[in-house]
Amino acid sequence: MRNAFIKAVYEQAGKDNRVYMLNADIGVFVFDDFKRDFPKRYINLGVAEANMIGVAAGLVLSGKVPFVYTIAPFVTMRCLEQIRVDVCLQNLNVKIVGVGAGLAYGVLGPTHHAIEDIAIMRALPNITVISPGDPWEAYEATKASVRHEGPVYIRLAKSGEPSLVEHRHNAFQIGKGVTLREGKDATLIATGCMVKNALCVAQKLFCEGINLRVINMHTIKPIDHDIILESARDTGAIFTMEEHSVIGGLGSAVAEVLAEESTEKVQFLRIGFKDTFCEVVGSREYLLAKHGLDVPSVSKMVANSLRGSPVQ
């Protein structure tokens, strides 16, 4: 996803001289093309995220469209108050891009995990929160964020994510969830890298006679109300799946819509980190399994829930 983002931002910079790239000392060679072709518009602020956000706000006040980029927890939480006041309060056109969503930096430990960032960003007025599901979507989201007037947070995994061929025929549109697989027994709504896992869960449960609908909710804010309510009506059961805490993320956003707007009786379960940090390090796959978020665990959880058995 990182390379797809960098390709998109490079192309956008070529078309639109308002586009700037601000970085807080990560990605040694990945910006070489940008630096070579747009040297004045590449600004490395060093290890100083708060200053980076303020500088970006100043650039917007002079008509620029800056992307600010570093590891997800640092670009959201270290400089949260700058994002709140300088960017969101003033509704400025800053594009905040965090790499290392969820457990992409699993072995680097909990300082480098991002499992609260959606919740925190989503609470801020004026901002749009996007969590792409694969490199293609990261590329499209980056392009769309330039066209979108206002603050955007894009949450990227890192590298090596599989492409989701299922959604290629859909144009990317901020705020519009995408149905990747039709199903009638329940709906699995996922975001980010969990979209791939959700498709695997659906495939696995299909073999067990459970037919799941799968929705890629790439935009967490504004959340797509229609697709949630339609799925609640059609399937009667909704499961959310995210590489994020169950507090405040996709699951909460979907729950808010269901609780306030759904007229159906809907079975509902949030699947994500249960208000905890990771206590050991490990690869993303290892840590997901340890926290019951791998494909076999989620499949079991969904199946048990639908059968009325205890979930865990």
């Binding site: 600004i43 708060a50 200053n51 980076m52 956000i53 303020g54 500088v55 970006a56 706000a57 100043g58 650039l59 917007v60 006040l61 002079s62 008509g63 620029k64 800056p66 108050e81 700058q82 006041v85 300088d86 309060l89 003033q90």
Partner: peptide
Amino acid sequence: EYGKIPGVETSTGSLGHGLSIAIGISLAA
């Protein structure tokens, strides 16, 4: 607050923000 009062270039109130914003403006200039 920015956008509400002519001549106010940016919203301030939380301390430690203005200098960074001015740097962005100066870089653009």
